[in-house]
């Protein structure tokens, strides 16, 4: 439990730090940072409670991230990416990339394969989640427009 709380607080600060780096406007800093906490919460829920693997868990959390960002974008009238990117930051597989490198130096090829695979799965899981949800929203939006006409 303690590690989970530390991770959630750290993901808030991490997302806040990246928001500053990406020159996010002041009044959007809080939603961007809270987005990071929310996404990491979703990821932890997926891996711990649902027992999903890296690929599925990161796809679901990235999908949640896209939904969150689209919602915030409508609410605050700004491009979606502004809320999406900082919130995604905790998902970036920096840890597993390091462990992959470390395994190469130690010539521990088994560890290399598991961590390398995790890095790739998380990366493509994120891409999958983002594009599927944005595609779905696009289609729904179009459908509404067509019905209106």
């Amino acid at each position: 439990m303690k590690t989970i709380i530390i991770q959630l607080v750290a993901s808030f600060l991490g997302s806040l730090g990246f928001s500053l780096l990406f020159n996010v406007e002041k009044k959007k800093l809080l939603p961007c940072s809270l987005g990071g906490v929310f996404i990491w919460g979703v990821y932890l829920f997926c891996t711990h409670s649902l027992g999903l693997g890296d690929l599925a868990a990161s796809a679901v959390s990235a999908g949640a991230c896209q939904l969150f960002a689209e919602g915030m974008a409508r609410l605050m009238k700004a491009p979606t990416t502004i809320f999406c990117i900082p919130a995604l930051v905790p998902l970036i597989p920096g840890g597993s990339l390091y462990r992959t490198m470390d395994a190469v130096i130690a010539r521990d090829w088994e560890k290399f394969y598991t961590n390398g695979a995790a890095t790739l799965q998380i990366t493509f899981g994120i891409a999958l989640g983002l594009s599927l949800i944005s595609g779905l929203l696009f289609t729904l939006h179009r459908k509404k427009k067509i019905e209106k006409n």
Partner: peptide, 19 residues
């Protein structure tokens, strides 16, 4: 100043994040 603050905050937070 914001860039420096952001870098320090992000890297510090992620060191804690990874344990």
């Amino acid at each position: 100043l914001l860039l420096y603050a952001g870098s320090a905050l992000a890297s510090g937070a992620f060191a804690l994040f990874f344990g």
